[in-house]
């Protein structure tokens, strides 16, 4: 039973990773690409690690998998924030669909 749950998590996680990669290819500008890269990427890798933890319930492996998930969820937004600020300040053009830019008014 746990094998099937783990397999579902594994496939779902790798599909989310693929969606993140597709998003980086397809979306129009740097900031929207970053949406796909941070969220779908960390969710996908987190699901893969969760699948590992679900199948091998040994506590040493479980702790390592949980540590990987915590590390991903902690580092992904920090890195995304830094890249977003750097790209905005270096004047990367926003997509033509952008509705409003309140940061520019300052």
């Amino acid at each position: 039973m746990t094998e099937y749950i783990a397999a579902i998590f594994l496939i779902l996680g790798s599909l989310f990773c693929l969606i993140a990669a597709l998003g980086v290819i397809r979306l129009p500008d740097t900031l929207t690409r970053m949406h796909a890269a941070t969220k779908a990427g960390s969710l996908g890798a987190g699901l893969v690690a969760l699948s590992h933890a679900v199948f091998f319930q040994d506590s040493g492996i479980f702790l390592r998998a949980v540590f990987i998930i915590a590390l991903l969820l902690l580092t992904a937004p920090v890195a995304a924030h830094l890249i977003a600020r750097a790209s905005y300040r270096s004047g990367v053009p926003l997509s033509g669909r952008t509705k409003i830019d309140e940061l520019k008014k300052k």
């Binding site: 969606i19 597709l22 998003g23 397809r26 979306l27 129009p28 500008d29 900031l31 929207t32 796909a36 779908a40 926003l94 997509s95 669909r97 952008t98 509705k99 409003i100 830019d101 309140e102 940061l103 520019k104």
Partner: peptide
């Protein structure tokens, strides 16, 4: 990402 065309409306 999957569907063709974009439905996103980005803004800051």
């Amino acid at each position: 990402v999957i569907t063709p065309g974009h439905i996103s409306q980005p803004g800051i």
